[in-house]
Amino acid sequence: MNICVFLSAADLDERYTRPAREFARLLGKGGHTLVWGGSDTGLMKVVADGVAEAGGSLVGVSVEFLAHKTRPGCDDMVVAKDLAERKALLLARSDAVVVMVGGTGTLDEATEILELKKHGKHTKPVVLLNTAGFYDGLKEQFHRMEDEGFLPLPLSDLVFFAEDGVAALAYLEEGAGVR
């Protein structure tokens, strides 16, 4: 399965890198392909290293203004002209999406993917990996949106909240019916 992972390119502490490394190893051992922003820095590097070390493949999709930070030696690396094209390519090349910890770029990617799913532009499973409770506030906001009628379909049809990498991958491999 080609799994798109949206996540930070920042250097983060062990409460985020350890679970990211563990999830990456699960992806690689499962024979999955990581489709990600292509950066060889921060948490993006941690995940790419883990997938590669465990035998998985790497497909990077960078953007022109970040091309100098791309990871060498990927199975495939594409450089998009802008962020909009990058997001479209990431979605097109994946069977599922996992959102890990990140900043405004990660949040932008996550909300666009969910908006596209809401409007039926894709049916790929989306998982928010809630490492160390990072997305607790967002989860609460999504529940409020659902409760107050802002979502035209059940939240569970849009996104699955996983507390760890094992639950995220189990959902993708079994619960979401994607292979």
Rank of each mutant, 00 (worst) to 15 (best):
Leu155Phe: 05
Gly165Trp: 01
Ile3Phe: 02
Ser8His: 09
Asp82Leu: 11
Lys139Pro: 04
Met145Pro: 07
Leu27Pro: 14
Val126Asn: 00
Arg71Ala: 04
Glu163Tyr: 01
Arg144Tyr: 06
Met44Gly: 00
Lys124Gln: 03
Ala162Trp: 02
Glu173Asn: 08
Gly37Asp: 04
Leu153Trp: 10
Ile3Lys: 00
Asp82Tyr: 03
Thr17Phe: 15
Pro125Cys: 02
Arg93Ala: 10
Lys81Gly: 10
Val166Tyr: 15
Gly149Ala: 05
Asp147Met: 08
Ala48Asp: 01
Asp13Gly: 14
Ala132Asp: 13
Phe6Gly: 08
Asp136Phe: 08
Asp49Leu: 03
Cys4Ala: 05
Ala84Met: 10
Ser57Val: 01
Ala110Cys: 14
Ala80Tyr: 07
Ser57Leu: 08
Ala88Asp: 12
Ala54Pro: 06
Gly137Trp: 09
Val78Arg: 15
Ala132Glu: 13
Asp75Leu: 04
Ser8Arg: 07
Val47Pro: 03
Lys139Arg: 14
Ala168Leu: 04
Arg86Trp: 02
Ser62Trp: 01
Pro19Phe: 15
Gly137Leu: 10
Arg21Trp: 13
Met44Glu: 03
Asp75Val: 00
Pro19Met: 14
Val159Asp: 01
Val178Cys: 05
His32Ser: 08
Lys118Arg: 13
Val79Ala: 11
Gly120Trp: 01
His143Ser: 10
Gln141Gly: 07
Ala10Asp: 15
Asp136His: 09
Ala9Leu: 13
Asp95Phe: 08
Ala67Leu: 02
Ala24Gln: 15
Asp147Asn: 14
Leu114His: 05
Asp82Ala: 12
Pro154Asp: 11
Gly165Asn: 01
Asp164Lys: 01
Thr70Arg: 09
Pro72Trp: 04
Lys81Cys: 07
Leu90Ser: 09
His68Asp: 09
Asn2Ser: 06
Glu115Ala: 14
Ala84Phe: 11
Arg25Phe: 08
Glu163Phe: 00
Ala168His: 06
Ala176Trp: 06
